[in-house]
Design a protein around this nucleic acid. Structure first.
Lengths: 107, 107
DNA sequence: TCACTTGCTACTAAAACTGTAGCAGAGTAC
DNA sequence: GTACTCTGCTACAGTTTTAGTAGCAAGTGA
């Protein structure tokens, strides 16, 4: 799957609007999950695999490359970690944790 | 694909944590997109199809059923619209619009 | 009754994801 | 130096999901 660059047509939208690229990216299996789990701190490849419970290494690597190309994550000695960009994105979606608890009560 | 009920094991997590169900749901193609486009106001099936540019009716209907079962959207005379739950979820992800614009400048 | 719209299903092809096995390189341990 | 372990990652076959197109049944209005 090609990397959803803002400004370019993406899966489901030819307009090139950044939000559509973002929705394409976040709509891919495990993309949100990886960001979520990485917010707990840096992790090696295998550590991340464990945090994600059941992700296949194939897919994990694919997503990591995408997220890296889009500058949401980076690699360092510690392994993978969120960049400033990635962190600011996480801050937005962070409230989903609390929201989902309320939601669970209602559904 | 089965509906990701909070409290139940979902794609990628057996823990049943609500957040994992939510991440599963939002990680499905077009789920976020549908919520996003519905936030612009109620829409009929075909209207929604157009807003989403390139979604296939098969998938649109599948996602609508899921979102309905999870009480994020509902149907009325006007067609489909966000429920209170859906609206409160949208309020969380709404800042993604602005964020993506900043991101577009950086990538 | 005939045209027209709407919500939606059927069906096939294409793309994405899973699951398992395992390789190459780096770091100890002896 | 060589055996052992751990790591990041790739290969590949099989399954599941999504795309894309066609079109049907029900409702509306003329």
């Amino acid at each position: 799957m090609s990397i959803p660059l803002p400004g370019k047509p993406v899966r489901g939208s030819k307009t090139g609007k950044p939000i559509m690229a973002l929705l394409d990216l976040l709509g891919r299996t495990w993309a949100l999950g990886i960001i979520w789990h990485l917010s707990q701190g840096p992790a090696t490849f295998r550590e991340l695999q464990q945090r994600c419970e059941k992700i296949s290494p194939t897919l994990l690597n694919t997503r990591l490359k995408e997220l890296k190309a889009l500058q949401l994550i980076a690699t360092q000695d510690q392994g993978y970690l969120l960049t400033q960009q990635g962190l600011s994105l996480f801050k937005i979606i962070c409230p989903l944790g609390e929201w989902s608890k309320q939601w669970a009560l209602a559904v």
